[in-house]
């Protein structure tokens, strides 16, 4: 059982680190919390079976790194729109084409005054 939770702890903590360094950093929270739980379970079994606790440190270290990066990104990273120059050109062209189309429509029922 201890081994199972060590493996689970490592897998989830590594997943958390991977997510944390990508734009999907918010997804690191769930595996990060799972890794912490696994670490605590391993700690419990290690105490009970009087075995080494060194491995728990690695799980916790990876998890703390992942959660720290995630929290840092959530607090300090501001969302900004990227390059939209081409998109703005598309908008201009679209309006020009729309005006041409509108010229061909029957808009007699518009009463502006």
């Amino acid at each position: 059982m201890r081994k199972l939770f060590i493996i689970l702890g490592f897998i989830t903590s590594i997943i958390a680190v991977v997510f944390a360094v990508t734009p999907l950093s918010n997804l690191a929270v769930a595996p990060g919390l799972m890794a912490l739980v696994c670490g605590l379970v391993v700690l419990f079994y290690s105490k009970k079976q009087v075995k080494s606790r060194k491995v728990i440190q690695y799980i916790f270290l990876l998890t703390i790194i992942a959660l720290t990066i995630t929290i840092y990104k959530a607090v300090f990273n501001t969302a900004e729109v990227g390059d939209i120059q081409k998109f703005e050109e598309t908008e201009k062209v679209s309006e020009e084409e729309a005006i041409e189309d509108l010229e061909g429509l029957n808009l007699d029922d518009i009463e502006l005054d």
């Binding site: 734009p23 999907l24 900004e80 729109v81 939209i84």
Partner: peptide
């Protein structure tokens, strides 16, 4: 418009 950090993953315009 997606924010710049998502453009590499899934760009929306």
């Amino acid at each position: 418009t997606t924010y710049s950090k998502w453009d590499g993953f899934f760009k929306i315009r």
